[in-house]
Amino acid sequence: MLTLRIEPTSRPVPSLDAQNATAATVWRDLAGEVCAWAAQRDGERWLYIPDVASYRLAEDRAEIHAVAHPSVSPQRVRRAYLRTVLPMAVQAVGHEVLHASAVRAPAGVVGFCAVSTTGKSTLAAELSRCGFELWADDALALDVRNDGVTAVALPFESFVRGPVAPAERRASNAAAPIAAVCVLGREADAHGDRWPRIRQLSPADAFVGLLTHAYCYTLDDAARKRAMVATYLRVADAIPVFEVIFRPGLQYLDETVDGVASLLGRLTR
């Protein structure tokens, strides 16, 4: 797929000033701080991670060149590349990518979409300890063809400490059919005794649910946006999408893992 090349020279990451802001796509974190921004410069696509590095998508779309911020380690440049830049770049070059962790079940890959800090990485890591191969930690790349929806493996680092399934060494570019996607949510004011609550979404709700967790390099490219919408409409129609609502807190982790593992066991190809 794409490879990272870190340039030998370093340079400060430009700030998102008024001049840049007009032509940029900006991503902010939960606190409203800019965590990344992208812009076209001289016909080239650039993605900037403040205080980390500037990343340029090469014209041949095979490499991403990183110019590190002074005093930032190559490990940090690579981590930001895996977590933020690679999913965006893969989406920019034509695949769809969900903000999701994923494991591989007997029926195929199952993705877990959620907003940051919901617990998707924790859930996937726990499932990997139950024997499901960890497939993705924060970005699930999709390939949609006439014969179904396939997950394309992207390199990743698990954000959850401790031992996880051995498949992190899986070859990049590996592919496997997608069996289902789960959209995760937490219910703090939880009553009743049947947790997690799992229901299959209608195709319309599935489409909206998937779209809300889609990586998108830019919405200004009308043709690319059309292709993205068409793809997610097909995905919502082709594979089951479940809403999984669980109780927050580590004391409820086991019941959530058991409920999801049971769902994974019931899925069929």
Partner: peptide
């Protein structure tokens, strides 16, 4: 509508 939503893809709905 809830039943139709369950059965139909969004464009058809």
């Amino acid at each position: 509508l809830p039943a139709l939503k369950r059965g139909l893809p969004l464009p058809r709905l």
